[in-house]
Design a protein around this nucleic acid. Structure first.
Lengths: 193, 193
DNA sequence: TAGTTACGCTACCTCAGGTATCGATACCTA
DNA sequence: TAGGTATCGATACCTGAGGTAGCGTAACTA
């Protein structure tokens, strides 16, 4: 474990571990200024680091934000012995809460927006951010891919649309309504798509 | 009647009526190049008009696209004697079909994205594009504002998320699933939010 | 000490949104 | 027919953001 990696130690000056600070500064800056005005330059300055240092770690702003979101979301908390209804309900409330955290919803909506015009970023967003959660849900719910993708479209789409149109995360009462609307469709075995 | 309007005729060279061509060129360009690369300059060039002429009519690219979408969507086709279920079902299928039209979905997702970082554009998007349909639905369904807003978040959010993540509009089978999921929540009187 | 790599800094490029200016043009009215 | 007015295309320009290149310096290893 301590040695098996092919590079026991790479020569030269080691990178400073600023990833965590960059993620935090990114979310903070996005929250304060909005996604578009949250320049890579500004984020770097907030960390006390040069812009070029950020670009040495992430090839684009989009990928930085994707990593930032991966860090913010972490793994899905999938309770072991829970029922399907409990699993889906907790997943919905979990993602709603995450999107409601300061900066996260803005960053998510922003990078999602960028991806609309940028197929490469869309691919990254899909592969790095959506797929892990999709696969976890497929396993936990024993549902086919297209059903889980539909589930994600509904839940994330709804939450992001609310965030984008109002600037505020969805209130708890509406998240409750979302749960109540989605659950019957997936717990009754009558799904079409 | 022939005079009551305060401006019987304004002096000077009249504006050329290029709005329709600009809308068409905008959708075409967005479809071909994506939202971000669909420059106002390019759209104008596609019409055979100077960029400044476009900016004389619309103060920003965002407002141009909003008008473009208003033109593309037109009024909601709300059948008169239809039941609530029929009304909602037809509304969902209508907006899904519109978003599926070439360029419309991209333009919608693009301007929505821009609005995330631009409160002024968000206000315009909400007031000019969302509110008319929201009010029409409120009247037709006799539902309170927050319920209709939730309905819009779910339907439009889901469709845009699919469009944004895949680059393709939602397939009919999934639109069917969306209808099947949403309708029970709104036709049974047990709504919470 | 030599080699390697990351660092901050600065300068730069591209591109897009948006503005200003100007001569030419089209329309109305006197 | 002449004058007033507002739009037209064209061009040039500004700002801001993403992203890159080059350089001298700092940190680490052998």
């Amino acid at each position: 474990m301590s040695r098996a990696t092919p590079s026991p130690r790479s020569p030269g000056r080691p990178r400073t571990g600023v990833d965590t600070e960059v993620f935090a500064a990114a979310l903070r800056t996005v929250q304060e200024l909005g996604y578009a005005r949250a320049t890579v330059d500004r984020i770097a300055a907030a960390v006390g680091v040069a812009k070029t240092t950020v670009y040495r770690r992430w090839p684009s702003k989009g990928e930085l934000i994707v990593d930032c979101l991966l860090d913010a979301f972490g793994p899905v908390p999938l309770a072991e012995g829970a029922s399907r209804a409990e699993l889906m309900s907790s997943a919905i409330r979990w993602v709603a809460a995450k999107i409601g955290e300061p900066g996260v919803g803005d960053a998510f909506a922003g990078v999602f927006s960028d991806a609309v015009s940028d197929p490469a970023l869309r691919e990254i967003l899909s592969a790095r951010l959506q797929d892990p959660y999709r696969l976890a849900l497929q396993g936990a719910l024993d549902e086919p891919e297209n059903r889980v993708l539909f589930f994600i479209d509904v839940v994330v789409g709804t939450l992001l649309h609310r965030m984008g149109m109002t600037g505020e995360p969805m209130a708890d009462a509406d998240v409750d309504a979302l749960v109540e609307m989605v659950l019957p469709h997936f717990t009754e075995g009558a799904g079409t798509a």
